[in-house]
Design a protein around this nucleic acid. Sequence first.
DNA 1: TTATAAATGTTATATTATTACACAGCGTTA
DNA 2: TAACGCTGTGTAATAATATAACATTTATAA
Lengths: 130, 130
Amino acid sequence: MQKQETLTKNQKIILDLIEKSDQPLKAYSILFDVKKKGINAPLQVYRALDKLVKIGKIHKIESRNAFIACKNSKCQIANATIFSICESCEDVTEIHDHKLSEHLRDFKDNKGMKYNKYNLEFFGLCKKCV
Amino acid sequence: MQKQETLTKNQKIILDLIEKSDQPLKAYSILFDVKKKGINAPLQVYRALDKLVKIGKIHKIESRNAFIACKNSKCQIANATIFSICESCEDVTEIHDHKLSEHLRDFKDNKGMKYNKYNLEFFGLCKKCV
DNA sequence: TTATAAATGTTATATTATTACACAGCGTTA
DNA sequence: TAACGCTGTGTAATAATATAACATTTATAA
Ligand SMILES: [Zn+2]
Ligand SMILES: [Zn+2]
Ligand SMILES: [Zn+2]
Ligand SMILES: [Zn+2]
């Protein structure tokens, strides 16, 4: 099997849900919401999430154990994510900053690590919460 | 009570253990190891971990749910961490790169977020695992 | 068509983290 | 001294997050 072009039923259901939310969703809240669509078990959710993360349709916010849709339609950057997180209202925004991305992409440590991915999370207070 | 200078018994026990390991430890593995010292419950571990994170003695590797000691004796950077993580052997190293840190510290988005913390995790393969 | 990779459905279980409550120790200050 | 606030402790219970194992089905490739 080559690269899968079309999403499967479960993957579509779960991606739809995540895309409708502009904020990250947690796995068990997703599970709760898709039970009416016949998805009954955590594993079904986690499998779809894994796949969607892998193909870059969604990203995991590691510090929150939550998943957010990628708005960048041509997301080549499943492996290069930057987020801004408000610690008061928990609002999360994906950041696309060319200069910063470049800097991170080009970063080399002094140990000969071969990087293929990074995830950066900024924390603070958003305008509304300052 | 002012800022606490000295660590408490539980905090010391747990920091000692983490400092002895050059790799991240998980909360329940810590719990297992400190049972012989009279720490019996998860909460006792998590409370110590929270405190140690807060004062910058250790850092949490978010993508691994694990905790590593900060080697930087004067760590003013509890709130500005960069890690390199090998996805094969799971070796984790804290990175201190002045230029990159500066770049991250100075980063401003276009939404008026007021940042006070960031965490960056690089993933890839270390020299041994390439 | 046959082999194989990917996805599904289900049950059970493992792992990570928090809530709730009672109490002890220390420093401040009334 | 006594009252108070703050931080930490100990314990039990439970919540939240994630994976293992197994049987089956579907999609693609040769
Ligand atoms: Zn994205
Ligand atoms: Zn906010
Ligand atoms: Zn550090
Ligand atoms: Zn390695």
